[in-house]
Design a protein around this nucleic acid. Sequence first.
DNA 1: CAATCTGTAACGGTTACAATGACAGTAAGC
DNA 2: GCTTACTGTCATTGTAACCGTTACAGATTG
Lengths: 149, 149
Amino acid sequence: MNSEFTIAVHSLVLLAHLPDHMATSEEIAANVSTHSARIRKVMGFLRKAGYVSTKEGIGGGFILSCKPEEVTLGEIYRLTCQGTLKPSWCSGDESKPCMISSKMDRLMGKVFCDAEKQMENYFEGHTIGSMLEQIRAFECPQSNTESLS
Amino acid sequence: MNSEFTIAVHSLVLLAHLPDHMATSEEIAANVSTHSARIRKVMGFLRKAGYVSTKEGIGGGFILSCKPEEVTLGEIYRLTCQGTLKPSWCSGDESKPCMISSKMDRLMGKVFCDAEKQMENYFEGHTIGSMLEQIRAFECPQSNTESLS
DNA sequence: CAATCTGTAACGGTTACAATGACAGTAAGC
DNA sequence: GCTTACTGTCATTGTAACCGTTACAGATTG
């Protein structure tokens, strides 16, 4: 799996942690530990799906436009990674006369698709809000500092 | 996910379809559509785990040494891919004072681990035997030919 | 000892992914 | 209206994972 799912979740949790704060792509990138252009790309998906609002120009950035406890990780997974569980590499050869070789790829496609649905089902049980709660529940000696850096 | 899981499943289903037949890595590779050296590598894992027996030298090859209906895809997944669901890329930075940044990677690690377990749980519901049955159940006009090529 | 097979390591090409740079477009403040 | 500070997006480069392939030692048969 590529890491856009992780970046999207991290960014949303961060924004949920900073309500009413316009965070720039630079701020988010520093927090996530990646480049701001990557953040802007992922945030583009989240904007089109209505999870964040963006504002260009001075004082602009990103802000949450949804309720954290209503956004599940399943939605974010589908937005960023759906269909990527199955390897692109294909087993067998449909043109072969052998029953196994000619049908294995179709069968594995079904298996991977169903497995992915199971995983999505697990992700449905978690929300951006519950993720933030879990982070806050970790034992955190220095958690009172609200620095972004 | 890399494709060793797929190769292992395909090879085992093929061997289950050809009971009492010593299949060489060349034969299996032709059926799977890959190189024989890759087959030998994957079969090495399956041999060490006791799913197949191998024989070197003339007349050698691979043969199933388990009951197809007792081998689940979950076992094969753990053997070939366990732990690969989580991207190697890491979000955040443990050394940062920010609660979100410093704890996100640990949290995502747990999320991916649990998601993988869900997927494994799905794979547990399928066996090499049931996979073979599904292939045989496909509508197959030319399925009587038992050619390997 | 010759032929055929596994077991395993190494190398090279290709593809996917991440980091980065660049720049047009947009909005705010002066 | 000009400057500044942002987003949105594309192109390029570096890098790691993956797959195909070659090579060869070891084992077994005849």
